[in-house]
Amino acid sequence: MTAAIMLQQASTIVDAALANGRAQNLVPLTVAVLDPGGHLVALKREDGSGILRVEIATGKAWGALGMGFGSRELAERAAKAPAFVNAIAAASQGRLVPAPGGVLIRNREGELLGAVGISGDVSDADEACAVAGIEAAGLVAQTGA
């Protein structure tokens, strides 16, 4: 059986990530947690979060899952090889967002459980909230390659 994020773990990640954002006084955030197959497990959009934030948060997580590394690495590759990222964006029908804030979720044994994507503030702050949420659930965050 393949490991996958459980609803309770996903809920903890979302709530802890949002609490971290509030503690830092960030702008309203949207948090999406996907299982290893890219299916949505949990999503919350804070009041006042922009209407595209669901798609952006999901795209950050989906891109991380699709490439097998955090979206920070995808953003770095986009800067170095924009044609490659354009090609994978086309191959994914535009479903990936190459910006920090998409973080792979692993258990202590290193098994992939899913990914979290956050959108709302600057990408570095989004990513920091994702890591805080994952760690609050007792899991391991992978932000890059």
Rank of each mutant, 00 (worst) to 15 (best):
A91Q: 15
L104A: 03
A23D: 13
R72C: 00
L112N: 05
A75W: 06
L18G: 00
G94Q: 14
M6S: 14
A136G: 09
L104H: 03
V85N: 08
A141G: 08
G101S: 10
G59R: 11
S92E: 08
S71N: 04
A99F: 11
L43A: 06
L65C: 05
S71D: 05
G144N: 10
F84V: 03
I134M: 08
D47F: 05
A125N: 14
M67H: 13
A125Q: 14
D124T: 13
A16M: 05
L34W: 01
A89V: 00
T58E: 15
D124C: 08
G63P: 01
A87C: 09
S71R: 03
P28V: 02
A78G: 04
G37R: 08
S92F: 09
F69E: 07
G120E: 05
W62F: 15
G117R: 06
L40N: 08
N86L: 10
G38A: 01
D47T: 10
A87W: 09
N107S: 12
R108N: 15
W62T: 02
L113V: 04
Q142F: 07
A115T: 07
A145Q: 10
K60S: 07
E73C: 11
A136P: 09
N20Y: 13
L96C: 06
L139Q: 09
V131W: 04
S123I: 01
G117N: 04
G70V: 02
R108P: 00
D15N: 15
G38V: 00
T58A: 12
A81F: 06
I105T: 09
A3M: 11
G138K: 06
N25L: 02
Q9M: 07
